[in-house]
Design a protein around this nucleic acid. Structure first.
Length: 830
RNA sequence: GCGAAGGUGGCGGAAUUGGCAGACGCGCUAGACUUAGGAUCUAGUGGGUAUUCCCGUGCGGGUUCGACUCCCGCCUUUCGCACCA
């Protein structure tokens, strides 16, 4: 055999054999316990990048480890294939989006196979294929039936560059998440999913996700933004109108000295129509509407407002309070109107000071009732806990008590009622783009909105597309597509020309893998019961809100359709860190991109995988280092040579149980190190997911084996074989090709990845001799070798007899003698 | 401003339950082998002129026989949220 790891031939050989023998197929009819490991599927951009190499390497280690542990492993791969880049390529280069996408998929599939990832390629899914998006459309129809998909006209976010609307989740600092263009507001009629109906469950079921990063749960929680409060009616003076507000602080209502409506509030017009204020107020509203959402919603920007001329009545105090309009109140949250309590809300305070509105203190720090005045506040609202004052019968109650009492009283009087509000909005899914799943809806003049009958699915994207390079792609321009017949009355009708947000496609793909070829259903309940949920999901934290919230929502909807009993798709999620170069994210514009293809050409897949797993724990960012890659290569070659240089001694012999009693001292130590290594690697893979320390443990074992061969004239070849065999088994999830080849060279039958994961012998971990650290007053002064069975008195005797200990102890009083069994003693002297 | 996670040698990182700080790797130094070495092997490698001593895990306190680890205060980096009533 060669004296170095010639990765080119070896890696190709094993990839071909794995494929030819179909060794990574998940078995639908196995009795073995299932394990479903999934990495987020990629968008087929045409190029694998290092982030992909990282996430798929992590997934592969888990998949191969679980397989060796005896699980029936489902480890599938697919393509998130709809999306804008395909259209942009079409516009720029005149290539059809499908052609562009399909050829990218071919390229990336080859790249993944070159990495040797253990996928069951028979289950490959492609969200842009009709046999997949048929079921995306089917889910849309189920949701339409349940009222979870609906159409409404509302102010939506419009990206002028992408020429489409965006979901709230896709707008970051008022910019398009994709192209960074500034988002505009448009009034459009669009399709929504009623995700708000699931807000409570999405929050509550975080409890089921024990192995999610806490940070991500908090991000989702903030995004959902639950707040408990009261909806309170404020009658308008000299009118039969009523303004409803939502507040989380009903306890401060006695301090409500004015009200504010959002400029878009429908009542505004009624208040000002025909009054002397009309023109002034309308001008103000026009000004505010010109402001960007960003300006309006930043706490730093100046609050602007105007008096409407109308008054409301505070329902608790009976006082008249002015009704204002201001830019800091948003129509989209709560009722679009607030009661303003300047003494106890900083925003209201800022506004009240600017427009000279009254301020009334109604909460005081506990124990200091009656001492806090408006002057004391000095423009800072008091928002801490406290006790009510100036609040009639409620004086003396705490904030929490007052909340309860007021809620009860107001509900009784019909002034208000308890309400929970969410920051989460419904999910806007319409996109004015071509390359997406068509929304299966038909508009008929007679029958209105008509869902496409299920038997007519899929609504196929028309392939022949007449587009001009530089122009925009849209289904609306394809007349054969748009013009159709009403499924109910047969009259001429028009199809919906918008497609769905691609996040819809990726919100259920993990369920298609369980039954990927089903033509009757997206999947059977039987298949879902067998495989679902995903036991371990792996992917980037950038999807913390978008994809992961939507996927959780879809899973709950699907559970409500009784297609699965599982309400959470990903019980465990490993959020892997980014791959950096020179401290920055790799990007073309920075010119710091490392191309996986070049790395695999130069070092091979096993080396690339080993480095990327070794350089940092998976959840942390990883700094790319060419020197580090060479280190990984060196280690693999060290293992290769350990086998190659001793191949005649190691080949063919049956692995026998080692008789520890017969081992000499260096042999016993080596055998012990093997068992320690097995224990550490298993623990690192099983519970900690720390691949870097698992690899370092294997490196230590390899070093120990070399050291043993160096110091021993007559090596114990049986022991050496056991060590090498097990080392290869432990290393095989990380470096599958090289270990497969060595396994074969050693004369074993069968694939290495189909062997049982090694277990360790508890007996072999035990040491006869221990090194005990001796501290005096907490400082390490000596080390002693003692037999493992020594008792405390014996240990004390040995330790005190030591010369170095004597030096520090003589003439002093021993106050304490602390013994930490098998590790350390600490002698406290004075 | 609010919330979360970090800060350990020249570098990436380790220390799993409060018990030897720096495992493993990179880099570096010296040596061996060699026509050659950017291959391989051996030894060394936190700092302080140091085999025995002292100092050392962002800074300052504290708890403890003992603290990278726990507590209090501060500095700093990264990420998330940010007029949500």
């Amino acid at each position: 055999m060669k004296d170095f790891y010639h990765f080119k031939e070896v890696e190709e050989k094993w990839q071909q054999r794995w494929e030819a023998e179909g060794v990574f197929k998940a078995e639908d009819d196995s009795d073995k316990e299932k394990y479903y490991v999934l990495e987020m599927f990629p968008y087929p951009s045409g190029n694998l990048h290092m982030g992909h190499v990282r996430v798929y390497s992590i997934g592969d280690v888990i998949a191969r480890y679980k397989k060796m542990q005896g699980f029936n492993v489902l480890h599938p791969m697919g393509w998130d294939a709809f999306g804008l880049p395909a259209e942009n390529a079409a516009i720029q280069h005149g290539i059809h989006p499908a052609e562009w996408t399909w050829s990218n998929i071919d390229i990336m599939r080859k790249q993944l196979k070159r990495l040797g990832i253990s996928y069951d390629w028979d289950r490959e899914v492609n969200t842009a294929a009709p046999d997949y998006y048929k079921w995306t459309q089917w889910f849309f129809l189920q949701m339409y039936k349940k009222g979870l998909a609906y159409k409404k006209k509302s102010a939506v976010n419009w990206c002028p560059d992408c020429e489409t609307v965006l979901a709230n989740e896709q707008v970051i600092y008022n910019r398009c998440e994709r192209c960074d263009a500034e988002v505009e507001e448009k009034e459009l009629e669009q399709w929504f999913f009623r995700i708000t109906e699931y807000a409570e469950r999405l929050l509550k079921d975080h409890d089921l996700l024990e192995n999610w990063p806490e940070k991500v749960k908090i991000m989702q929680k903030n995004w959902i933004g639950r707040s408990e409060g009261l909806r309170i009616k404020f009658p308008v003076k000299d009118s039969d109108q009523v303004i409803e507000v939502f507040t989380t602080r009903p306890d401060t209502i006695y301090g409500a000295t004015y009200m504010v409506l959002a400029p878009e509030h429908p009542l505004v017009e009624k208040f000002i129509k025909g009054t002397e204020k009309e023109e002034e107020v309308n001008n103000f509203i026009k000004e505010v509407r010109k402001q960007k959402e960003m300006e309006r919603t930043s706490p730093e920007s100046e609050k602007q407002g105007i008096f409407t001329g109308a008054y409301a009545v505070n329902p608790m105090t009976g006082e008249d309070i002015p009704i204002m309009i201001a830019n800091y109140v948003l129509m989209g949250y709560g009722t679009g109107a607030i009661m303003a309590v300047p003494a106890h809300d900083q925003r209201d305070m800022d506004f009240a000071l600017k427009y000279d509105l009254p301020i009334k203190v109604v909460i005081q720090p506990a124990g200091q009732e009656g001492t806090l005045t408006v002057e004391d506040l000095e423009g800072e609202a008091y928002t801490e806990d406290g006790v009510l004052v100036n609040s009639g019968d409620y004086n003396g109650l705490t904030v929490a008590e007052a909340f309860e009492k007021m809620a009860e009283d107001m509900e009784e009087k019909g002034i208000g009622r308890r309400e929970v509000n969410y920051r989460l909005r419904d999910w806007l899914i319409s996109r004015q783009r071509y390359w997406g799943t068509p929304i299966p809806i038909i508009y008929c003049d007679q029958c209105g909105i008509v869902p496409v009958p299920e038997e007519d699915l899929p609504v196929v994207l028309p392939e022949t597309l007449d587009f001009q390079p530089g122009g925009k792609l849209s289904l609306a321009q394809v007349e054969d597509f748009v013009n159709t017949e009403c499924p109910i009355c047969g009259a001429k009708a028009k199809r919906e020309a918008d497609t769905m947000d691609t996040f819809v496609d990726s919100s259920w793909y993990f369920l298609r893998y369980v039954d990927p070829h089903n033509e009757e259903l997206p999947f059977t309940k039987e298949a879902a019961d067998k495989w679902f949920p995903v036991d371990q999901y792996i992917g980037g934290i950038e999807h913390a809100i978008l994809h992961l919230l939507y996927a959780r929502f879809f899973t709950k909807v699907i559970a409500d359709l009784d297609m699965t009993d599982e309400v959470e798709p990903f019980r465990n999620w490993l959020a892997q860190g980014m791959v950096l170069k020179d401290g920055a994210k790799m990007s073309k514009s920075k010119g710091n991109v490392v191309d996986p293809n070049e790395i695999i050409d130069k070092y091979g897949a096993d080396t690339a995988r080993l480095f990327i797993l070794f350089a940092a724990p998976p959840e942390k960012d990883l700094e790319w280092s060419d020197a580090g890659v060479e280190g990984a290569e060196r280690f693999l070659n060290r293992v290769w040579r350990l086998v190659a240089e001793n191949i005649t001694e190691l080949r063919g012999k049956a692995v026998q149980k080692i008789d520890m009693a017969a081992l000499g001292k260096p042999e016993k130590e080596l055998y012990q190190q093997l068992n320690v290594c097995i224990k550490r690697v298993t623990g690192d893979l099983e519970t900690r997911m720390n691949f870097n320390t698992a690899i370092s443990a294997i490196m230590e074992l390899s070093n120990a084996a070399y050291h043993y061969l160096n110091v021993t004239k007559e090596a114990d070849n049986e022991l050496l074989k056991v060590v090498v065999d097990n080392m290869l088994l432990l290393l095989s999830p990380f470096a599958p090709h090289m270990t497969a080849e060595l396994w074969e060279h050693l004369g074993h039958e069968g694939f290495i990845h189909e062997q049982a994961w090694p277990g360790y012998e508890e007996e072999a971990l035990k040491q006869d001799e221990l090194t005990i650290v001796v501290q005096i007053n907490g400082k390490v002064r000596d080390r002693v070798e003692v037999s493992a069975g020594i008792d405390e008195a014996g240990l004390r005797e040995v330790v005190l007899a030591r010369e170095k200990v004597q030096e520090h102890v003589v003439g002093k009083e021993i106050i304490k003698f602390i013994v930490i069994p098998k590790k350390l003693v600490n002698i406290v002297v004075k």
